[in-house]
Nucleic acid binder design. Sequence first.
DNA 1: AAAATTTTTTAGATTTACCTAAAAATAAAA
DNA 2: TTTTATTTTTAGGTAAATCTAAAAAATTTT
Lengths: 220, 220
Amino acid sequence: MQSFTEENYLKIIYHLSETSNNVQTNAIAEQMQTKPASVTDMIKKLADKGFVDYIKYQGVTLTEKGKNAAIDIVRKHRLWEVFLVDKLNFKWDEVHDVAEELEHIKSVALIERLDEFLGFPKSDPHGDPIPDKNGRFAKTQFTKLIDLKIGDSGTITGVSQHSSAFLKHLEKLGLTLGKQIHINDVTDFDGSVEISVNGKQINISREVAKHILISNNGKN
Amino acid sequence: MQSFTEENYLKIIYHLSETSNNVQTNAIAEQMQTKPASVTDMIKKLADKGFVDYIKYQGVTLTEKGKNAAIDIVRKHRLWEVFLVDKLNFKWDEVHDVAEELEHIKSVALIERLDEFLGFPKSDPHGDPIPDKNGRFAKTQFTKLIDLKIGDSGTITGVSQHSSAFLKHLEKLGLTLGKQIHINDVTDFDGSVEISVNGKQINISREVAKHILISNNGKN
DNA sequence: AAAATTTTTTAGATTTACCTAAAAATAAAA
DNA sequence: TTTTATTTTTAGGTAAATCTAAAAAATTTT
Ligand SMILES: [Mn+2]
Ligand SMILES: [Mn+2]
Ligand SMILES: [Mn+2]
Ligand SMILES: [Mn+2]
């Protein structure tokens, strides 16, 4: 049984593992909003408990055990997000902080019944996949909107930035999950993108385009 | 913002306040499953923060602030219990431990929307009243089944013992909330009580009868 | 390859919530 | 009213998770 803190470390190491194979101390410290010295302490503890493989100065890698533990927390986090949006009418930009707390509730029965109550959802309000109770989930193939070419089109199926500010902005622009978009033009001056959505033509900044994930995209 | 531990102390002091005016160190220690010395430490901290009035060797009393904080936690605990039973099909003997964790989730929006989602329930699965968002609730008048006389009848509206063993036992006997009962006889030998419920006649021990709460009782 | 920079680790403290053992205060019994 | 028993507090310490400052290792730049 892990502490809240250990669980948070595991989850962050898991997410950082998606980008780089060896997760660095400083990267963890930044995500955990703590100091590198504290991370080193915790890393040693997680290594002792068999959650990570650790070589001094070489960063950490999750063991199978560590990966399973992390996926379990991700599953809880995302299921609770679905609950908050589907049942309690939270907006997609309001759920993250509450889910950060709820993900630590320890009860296998609770999460299995919640999963059933929600109809075994496959993805959370941000388009992220929800692992099943065995930790399995489909690794979805996304293209960043910024990487599409003029004339391409596709469906918004995820976001790679979960800040409330970003999500509210998307909402205001009408860029929500499931929406069909088409790339009309890319501005030379600032790299901003002209897209069609909801029958209207809008302009979004490079920064926004970077964090919108597209699937079913028909190349031109 | 209080820690989980502080919240647990406040809730326990609140419940103990229902019986005695000045809550004793040892009583708190027993409920918290900790040592009296630890309780003294925490009491000082709670007094510093203005949650309790404390005079050395004289026990503690909740301040208005402390009482409000405690009621808020009780409200969360009971609402989550309703959620677990009504929405996730938990039995009334399975909810307590999970609610002990859920009651500490800190989000005003969450608990207000949960309350609404549940239809603003007035009592929890054990018959205990749920305070509204202003901390108000009807103090219900219960009679212990053990205090009824032969010929009396009434409705089961609560229990004063929440252990899983006790609740499972009641379930098996058909003694659930809302059931009509009638006192047929009291055994001289062991003080056990002969009652009618569901058209059947059953015998329950004094110990069980002590912890069943009856309302709408028609005296004979 | 040497120097400069960045990353990571160690050393030593702090805070919170505990603990045990012993002293002090209060309450109950003789 | 002593004596005895119970309750409560103090004193001193531990473990988890954090911190700052400084040393050590690794990486990058010159
Ligand atoms: Mn989230
Ligand atoms: Mn999410
Ligand atoms: Mn309960
Ligand atoms: Mn209850």
